[in-house]
């Protein structure tokens, strides 16, 4: 099978990402290591949202909740002196999956706007819970001075090593989502998105499949949360702010909804755009001062006129979820 152009571009981008540490060292610009690592972490979160939003048609407006759960799992364990990375990340993934199971079990019974709102409501509850827990700093949050420890294997305090860990995880997540949506399981999810009644008619009750997808997405996003808290070395309930859920959705749309590579393109585009609008010295001061105004305009224009996102620009000859 000949790979589609989109697949080739994805591989090219991953190859470029792999070269970032070398380039950053060559140009003496270690900052880009941080920036691209952050982009990749958000790409993992966006990829998990893409699974339920892009393929499953479940418009979750509370996906930041799992970013928060994953971050809290790592931060809280570290606060109590447990630094074992395997344990921390397992709790992050397992905890997020569990929370997603509870939220999903209630939410997936609803649909449309009700689904959007109930996922938002659950995330708001977790957010307010986060800012009320004094032990973990409330809204101040707490510093996570010692990163997740993987004795003898890898040291996350080394920026380059951490970078490659994130890159590897991103590749695994993208592959996982890709395999998942093209499996029998994924067929049911995608069929339920386009026609709920028909899915039922051919003998599948979509509920358990949707719930499973919701839980998997939560678990992956929990992993992103564990990475994010290591990236910032700081735990804060801000990770669960409702605007953050909106940003994740924007990344999915901007990159190209329902495509394998979309979340990565979207995360990169949004975070680079924010950076450019604020800091690019060629832009006039009026742009810097009101940069969110221009971000808003880009958002509206993308939704109205570039629905297929960046990945849509690279669309190959055939349609579908081939990435």
């Amino acid at each position: 099978m000949k790979p589609s152009p989109r697949t080739l571009v994805l591989f090219a981008v991953l190859a470029l990402l792999a070269a970032v540490p070398t380039l950053a060292a060559a140009f003496n610009q270690p900052f880009y290591l941080d920036l691209f690592r952050r982009i990749m972490i958000f790409a993992i979160a966006a990829a998990s949202l893409n699974l339920i939003l892009g393929y499953g048609g479940m418009v979750s407006f509370g996906h930041a909740a799992y970013l928060g759960i994953g971050a809290y799992a790592v931060g809280v364990l570290a606060h109590h002196g447990i630094h074992n990375g395997w344990l921390q990340w397992a709790v992050a993934i397992g905890g997020s999956a569990l929370v997603a199971l509870v939220i999903g079990a209630v939410s997936i019974r609803t649909s449309g706007i009700y689904f959007i709102m109930i996922t938002l409501a659950f995330t708001q509850m977790l957010y307010y819970m986060g800012i009320s827990i004094e032990e973990y700093g409330g809204d101040d949050g707490i510093r996570v001075a010692k990163l997740s420890q993987f004795e003898g294997l890898i040291d996350l305090a080394n920026p380059t090593a951490f970078y490659y860990v994130v890159l590897a995880l991103l590749a695994v997540v993208l592959l996982l989502v890709h395999r998942l949506v093209n499996s029998r399981f994924g067929m049911v999810i995608r069929a339920a998105k386009s026609n709920d009644a028909r899915t039922r008619a051919i003998g599948f009750s979509p509920y358990p499949y949707r719930l499973a997808a919701f839980v998997i997405a939560g678990a992956i996003c929990g992993l992103a949360g564990a990475l994010l808290v290591n990236q910032t070395a700081y735990l804060t309930p801000e990770f669960m702010n409702w605007t953050r859920s909106g940003e994740l959705m924007f990344m999915v749309i901007l990159g190209g909804i329902g495509t394998t590579a979309g979340p990565l393109f979207g995360a990169a585009a949004l975070l680079l755009l924010e950076d450019l609008l604020q800091g690019w010295s060629l832009l006039p001061k009026l742009v810097h001062n009101f940069w969110q105004f221009y971000l808003g305009i880009v958002l509206v224009l993308v939704v109205l006129f570039a629905k297929r996102g960046l990945a849509g620009l690279l669309r190959g000859s055939k349609d579908g979820a081939d990435g």
Binding site: P30, F31, D34, R38, T232, Y234, E238, D275, Q278, G279
Partner: peptide
């Protein structure tokens, strides 16, 4: 002088600080 906007978010503040330090 280089100004950076933290958007009241700790992780964004850290990101901005990294940019100032390293870039």
């Amino acid at each position: 002088i280089i100004y950076g906007d933290d958007q009241v978010k700790p992780d964004v503040g850290k990101q901005v600080a990294d940019e100032m330090l390293k870039k």
